[in-house]
Design a protein around this nucleic acid. Structure first.
Length: 263
DNA sequence: ATGGCTATCATTGATAGA
């Protein structure tokens, strides 16, 4: 039976609740990874997801960040804290990470830090977070086990992932160091599922609210599904659904999805 | 245009996003 998995930076689950629920229903999504939910767990709208038959796990905080997963199959929590490997940082109160197991699949839902302005402490935090993610992924990686990293990576990895990279030269999303660590993560043995199917396409997953970016298609592709070889073997289809971005009161991101043969 | 918009929290302004 095919399994359809999506990732969507919703930019506030409260503002986007009805459109997210409708999109899940219309797109026949089995598992959805959400980012920028912007609410504490007590206030997460669990009921609305439960009513359409989904189990939910949320890891949020007040005002900013926040990740959540909703699934037709039981969600088994593995980890909601990305471990530290750098002794300089002793705590991290930003809700950006969820590692779960659903059926036989290890799934990580992530919201990688933006990092602007660079250089500066926010960029240092981003790079440190990427190093932690690399270490964690190396630790759990097994090429014979299905593993999916999905979410908002806040990285413009290739020139084809941006309408005009000349405007992003000094941005934290495109700096050489950012792309170097993204490459290091991929080199553990993961595949960018979108690029596997569309090696040369220019399609985006984010358009700024400002300056008519959506109307001009001034977008960037920063939401990814990185998948292990075991998932590649069962991959049926991949896509970016632009339609939610064109609706009233949209998120500035649009959902991405993969379909795999699982059972 | 170091601009343009959207969301949150707190109280009409500051902060963050990318």
């Amino acid at each position: 039976m095919p399994l359809k998995i999506a990732s969507f930076n919703v930019n506030s689950i409260k503002m986007r609740l009805q459109s997210v629920i409708n999109w899940i229903d219309q797109s026949e999504i089995d598992i959805i990874l959400m980012q920028e939910t912007k609410t504490i767990d007590e206030n997460f709208p669990y009921k609305d997801f439960n009513e359409i038959g989904l189990d939910v796990l949320a890891s949020g905080q007040k005002s900013y960040n926040g990740v959540a997963i909703a699934s037709k199959f039981k969600i088994n929590e593995i980890n909601r804290i990305l471990p530290f490997y750098n002794q300089d940082i002793i705590e991290d109160d930003q809700a950006r990470f969820l590692h779960v197991k659903i059926e036989n699949i290890n799934i990580i839902c992530l919201y990688l830090p933006n990092g602007n302005p660079a250089p500066g402490p926010k960029y240092d935090y981003k790079i440190n977070w990427m190093k932690r993610l690399i270490k964690y992924t190396e630790k759990i990686y097994d090429k014979n086990e299905p593993l999916i990293l999905g979410g908002d990576f806040n990285v413009i990895q290739e020139d084809n992932d941006c309408y005009d990279v000349s405007k992003w030269q000094d941005d934290a999303l495109y700096l050489k160091k950012t792309r170097k660590y993204m490459k290091e993560l991929i080199n553990i043995g993961l595949i960018d599922s979108y690029r596997l199917k569309y090696p040369n396409s220019k399609e985006y997953s984010f358009w700024d609210y400002q300056a008519g970016a959506w109307q001009k298609d001034n977008g960037i592709r920063i939401d990814f599904f990185l998948i292990s070889p075991e998932i590649v073997d069962t991959l049926i289809d991949v896509g970016i659904d632009k339609s939610p971005r064109g609706q009233e009161k949209p998120s500035d991101h649009t959902p991405i999805w993969i379909e795999i043969e699982n059972f």
